[in-house]
Amino acid sequence: MTDAIMTSRATRAPALCATVDYDGVDTGDGMVASARDFTADFLAAAPAVGRARVTQERVDLGRLVVSELVTNAVRHAPGPCRLMLELFEDALEISVFDRVEASPVPRGHDPGRVGQHGVEIVVAICESVSVEPHPWGKRVRVRLSLV
């Protein structure tokens, strides 16, 4: 993991933006836990940029979404990945960049299936989910309402 970069911006740009890069060497729970903690710390900084405190419910949902997206990258796109968080007045945008072009596909609802519900969970929680191809892989971007 490399150090996080936090910046403050104006206008339609996010009030706060931070990224963290993972080298992909730690492919276990440590990387996912680190991403969840990074998200909680990021949202705790909201008052420092003049935004209201983010409720604990929304922090928990943000941590859950990040956990599912980073877990998906670890399992299906081994190698380096980047987590980017952007704080807007009413929403948190979460992006995970990885090195595999294939898009995550939600599986059909199956209460009997053990595991593999991550994309379903993200789609159910977030306002929007998009996958953007890049020459070196893809960006999965989601928007989580904070209101």
Score class of each variant (00 low, 15 high):
V129W: 02
L146R: 03
K138L: 04
R63W: 00
V49I: 10
E127P: 00
F88N: 00
L69I: 03
A35W: 02
S145K: 09
E68P: 08
Q56A: 15
L85E: 03
A44V: 10
A13G: 05
S34F: 00
H109V: 14
A33H: 13
V96D: 01
A15E: 03
D29R: 13
T19L: 15
D60G: 00
P135H: 02
F97A: 02
G79P: 06
S130L: 06
A52Y: 05
S95C: 09
T55Q: 02
V70D: 07
T39M: 02
R99I: 04
V105G: 01
R9Q: 12
V96T: 06
N72W: 08
P14W: 10
Y22H: 11
M1S: 13
R36N: 00
V147Y: 11
A102P: 07
E89G: 11
A18T: 09
S95G: 06
T11A: 14
H134G: 00
R113N: 05
H117R: 10
S128W: 08
P111Y: 10
D26F: 15
Y22L: 05
D3F: 12
L43H: 09
G118I: 01
V100C: 09
A73S: 13
I94M: 02
R9Y: 14
R9A: 09
R58P: 01
G79V: 11
H134T: 10
Q116F: 13
A13R: 09
V122N: 04
P47K: 14
A15R: 13
I121H: 05
F97I: 04
G24D: 07
Q56G: 13
A15T: 01
Q116T: 09
R63I: 00
P133W: 07
L43Q: 06
R75C: 11
C17A: 13
F97R: 04
R139D: 01
G62I: 08
A33K: 12
S95A: 13
H109F: 15
N72H: 14
A124C: 14
A48Q: 09
S145G: 13
M1W: 10
D3H: 04
E120H: 11
D37G: 04
D21E: 07
G118Q: 03
S34N: 03
R36S: 04
L61A: 10
P135G: 08
S103P: 12
